[in-house]
């Protein structure tokens, strides 16, 4: 069984924001909300590195662990999704998440949060796959169509990889080998609990 993962190869990421725009375009995310963003370290100085970050769809996702209403579920291949009918917008997941993924787009006066929104790995949510309801509430469901997340599929340099963890690792390690450098797998260990060199890691 596949285990879906994201990896952003910092050696290839050029901070072109294609992933951010592809996500917003594909999922019709409103102005002011980002499911994905690109962060740059040492901006403008030697050592500058950029990485694209969204929900990493963690193994033992901390968001699910702290959710008081248990609105999270995980698909068999490891995609972490949630049900907005149950979500109460408490924001615990936001504090638990090491990647800052949960967003709260439905802002109202006096500090009341709306439902949490985050990257779905382009897998929609509980409503019928590719229905209008699913699209409007959760965004596109590319997985149901046999496609992968739009951000990775459109990445300008194929820095952002999304797919089965073993295949992702395979591509990435080939690149590392070619570069004869050390792997620089930002967030991988944190999200999936194991380094990239461990083959056949548990999901």
């Amino acid at each position: 069984m596949a285990r879906m993962k994201f990896l952003c190869d910092a050696e290839r990421c050029i901070e072109c924001n294609a992933c951010v725009v592809a996500c917003n375009n594909e999922n019709d995310v409103p102005w002011g909300i980002n499911r994905r963003r690109v962060l740059t370290l040492n901006d403008g100085e030697p050592g500058e590195k950029s990485i694209s970050v969204a929900c990493m769809h963690c193994t033992d996702a901390p968001c699910a662990a702290v959710c008081p209403v248990d609105c999270f579920y995980t698909t068999t291949d490891g995609i972490v999704l949630h049900d907005k009918d149950i979500c109460i917008g408490c924001g615990y997941c936001f504090y638990a998440c090491p990647f800052g993924a949960p967003q709260f787009p439905e802002q109202e006066a006096f500090g009341v949060r709306g439902k949490m929104d985050k990257c779905t790995f382009c897998a929609g949510g509980p409503p019928e796959d590719n229905s209008v309801e699913e699209y409007e509430r959760y965004g596109a469901n590319r997985i149901a169509e046999g496609k992968l997340p739009a951000c990775a599929e459109m990445c300008s340099t194929k820095a952002l990889l999304a797919g089965d963890g073993e295949l992702v690792a395979d591509i990435y390690l080939t690149r590392v080998l070619k570069r004869s450098g050390r792997p620089d797998t930002w967030g991988w260990q944190k999200a999936y609990g194991a380094g990239l060199t461990v083959s056949g890691e548990a999901s």
Partner: peptide
């Protein structure tokens, strides 16, 4: 909607921010 043009020998499905927004 927009899909990546995976067969393009020049872009292989890729876009930058501008290309990802052409819709």
């Amino acid at each position: 909607g927009q899909e990546p043009d995976l067969e393009s020998p020049i872009s292989l499905g890729a876009h930058c921010a501008k290309g990802a927004a052409v819709r």
